[in-house]
Computed example of a mutant assay.
Amino acid sequence: VIAPVGTGTRDTSLSDNESIPVVEERLRVGKRDASHGRVRVHAYTVEEPITESIDLREDRVEIERRPVDRAVTGTEAAFQDRTLEAEEYREEAVVSKEARVVEEVGLRKTSDTHRETISDTVRHTEVEIEDDRNDLDKTRK
């Protein structure tokens, strides 16, 4: 008579096709990609008022008239047409702008590989068979 393991009772009506499944867990270790956040770089334009000082020069022409009373000398050109001319100059501020690249910002991804040791438990079925038959029964197979 064979009793199923763990029932504690004997069953004499077992059919020949009954069996106990032997189950064993196996550990499968895989991997998956998991997002850990995002980096976003956003560039925008900001206008900033700026003040610069510059010294500018101005030339002015002034007309001077002074009273004189003297005799004409031989070195002076008397009664000849003459023209005196002077031009005024003024410095003006000249503003120009130049766009310059002063820095570059980019994103670079790097990958590292590391080894992890996974510890877990797995289960399996153990089967114990108790055979209380005497030697005569074993020879009758």
Rank of each mutant, 00 (worst) to 15 (best):
E98C: 04
D132P: 01
V122K: 12
T12S: 13
R40N: 14
R40D: 15
H114V: 15
E47A: 13
E103M: 07
K97W: 05
T139N: 11
L136M: 13
D33W: 09
E92K: 06
G6F: 01
D132I: 08
H36E: 14
L136Q: 15
I118V: 15
R123S: 14
V101I: 14
Q80C: 08
P4F: 09
R40V: 15
R10V: 15
H36A: 13
D16H: 10
N134Q: 11
R82H: 08
V95W: 00
T45E: 10
D11C: 10
Q80E: 10
S111K: 15
V22C: 06
E52C: 09
S15P: 01
K97M: 05
D137P: 00
E52V: 11
V101R: 11
D55V: 14
S19R: 11
V105P: 00
D135L: 15
V61R: 03
R26P: 04
G8N: 04
D131F: 02
T75P: 00
V127M: 03
K109L: 08
G37I: 06
E116G: 05
R32G: 06
R32Y: 02
I63D: 09
E58I: 05
R38P: 00
R26L: 12
G8V: 02
V127P: 00
S15G: 06
T75Q: 08
P4Y: 09
N17M: 13
A77Q: 10
D132K: 14
A99Q: 11
R40H: 12
